[in-house]
Amino acid sequence: ETFNINVASGSPPVVPWVKLISDVFIPEVNARIGDEHTINWIESYSGTVAKVGGVLEAVESGLIEMGQVYAIFEQDKLILQNITYMTPFGSDDLELVTRMIGELHDEHPALKKAWEDNGQVFIAPIGLDTHYIATNFPVTSIDDLKGRKIGGAGTIANWLNGVGATAVDGNFSVHYNNIQTGVYDGLLNFSSGIFPNKLHEVAPMLTRVDFGAQFVGALTINKDTWDSFPEEVQTAFLEAGEIYRLKVSEALQGFARMAEGKMVEQGAMQSRLPEEERTRWAQALPDLAADWVVRAEAKGLPAQEILDAWIAKQADNGVALVRTWGQ
């Protein structure tokens, strides 16, 4: 059989999890389906078919067959998939976090149902490596952040406001300029994003806070397309998805370590926020998860159950939690 698969992402192929669709996922699928089936792949990255916030709908409608869906841009339709952003200060091991998220999807039908309600099937999770706070002033205590303006868009802004800093909206195309000219004094971001954008030049104090690796979204496939697949093709996609997940984690963590080394080489000062300060930070935040549970349960979703399972799973995997969210 022959299938036409157009796979899309709102991000450009310089992002590892986009590049690895071409370099790992597609070849792994092709190798597994052998000569019995053929897939004609069309790759539409950089938002050429849908922007980051539009991929969910594009896959659901069947405009494209596969896509990289960012749950962080779907705070209402994929509310449950925003779980790690509501429970920061978890593990920094991206491979572990995406593995636990995958298991959670297998064990809790509500999570897979969220994808199916949007007409798609979850193939592989994608995530971000640990977050740094890069500043042009030294940070040894969370008190140092009080009254400071820090760039950080989206849900992570909630992490900043809780310690008396002011989150200022920004993105990678404006961070450099904004820090240089004092629009803000630093930013909160994942380490593999700071280096390529040279942000350590203007915010050379790199403080690793260990907010934990984050579950961002997933590689998904249209439900009807999925149902049209013979079983061996479905298996091929899931197996290729698992390899893709491992390679993405490896690539991001490898890149993050390389970036950290390079940034220090180029004059940045790297430090780690002391453990007691990290704990203070976690305690200072409002209970993000509790608010999230209320919002999700109002929509009839078993958020408390999934939150409890998430906390238990982290404990089972030896993740030391500095705050038990949702209590």
Binding site: Q75, G154, T155, A157, N158, N161, L288, D291, R295, K299
Partner: peptide
């Protein structure tokens, strides 16, 4: 029906 919002909850 889905109560879709733009922005970030909490902010």
């Amino acid at each position: 029906t889905a109560g879709e919002h733009a922005g970030v909850y909490g902010l």
